[in-house]
Design a protein around this nucleic acid. Structure first.
Lengths: 105, 105
DNA sequence: TTGACATGCAGCTAAATTGCTGCATAATGA
DNA sequence: TCATTATGCAGCAATTTAGCTGCATGTCAA
């Protein structure tokens, strides 16, 4: 549990998750393409995400393919959102979207 | 956004959220009752949670009452869970619950 | 008014974290 | 075989963070 939140605490790791969310099964070099960061840094970040089981990996020859695992994310909701407050929060977010106030990050 | 994840990264802050989830509207001294921590530390933690808007406060005389705000939590799901993977993850978690494997934290 | 209580604010130290450089390993393809 | 490519591992400097102590502020109640 602690590993999940620690992993999500860093903006670079969240950006890597965003990239995996858009396209699964990317290699390390593919993931950092266009990012202002050395390969070795990303390796450390991906190791953190992997340990938290937010990212699952699969070797193909010398290539390591990365996949986003949705389960840990789903666990977060269940901890602090009961059905009623969860529905209310979702409604608020839908309203916010409708008002175009989607200024993320 | 960054503030939310940074706030959730610390186990002490998550414990404070757990306590607020169980009982809303607690004061500072009520919140730290039974915890092995000085009052001043908890003040800093609550300030972090407050800045991330995970906790909302309300003054009543000299007492500061704390409330859990579910909206930022709901935002996390929307970022990395599309409808299909979210449903699948929820199903996995329900299955896990049914198998009694709820060893949190 | 005055003592007790709830809380805030400043500053210190120890520990953790980030991103880097440098080098090693292993697989692919000409 | 051998150069190239994909990745891992070790270690370093700078920054951030957690929890503490000490003191200040403001409210309540006798």
């Amino acid at each position: 549990m602690d590993a999940i939140f620690k992993a999500l605490a860093d903006p670079t790791r969240r950006k890597l998750l965003d990239r995996l969310f858009r396209k699964q099964g990317q290699t390390l070099t593919e993931l950092i393409d266009g990012l202002d960061m050395r390969r070795q840094s990303a390796t450390k970040h991906l190791a953190v995400l992997e340990e938290a089981q937010l990212v699952t990996c699969q070797w193909h020859g010398r290539e390591k393919l990365h996949y986003l695992n949705p389960v840990p994310i789903a666990e977060i909701n269940r901890r602090w959102l009961d059905k009623f407050s969860g529905d209310r929060a979702a409604a608020i977010l839908n309203l916010r979207d409708a008002l175009q106030e989607n200024d993320n990050e």
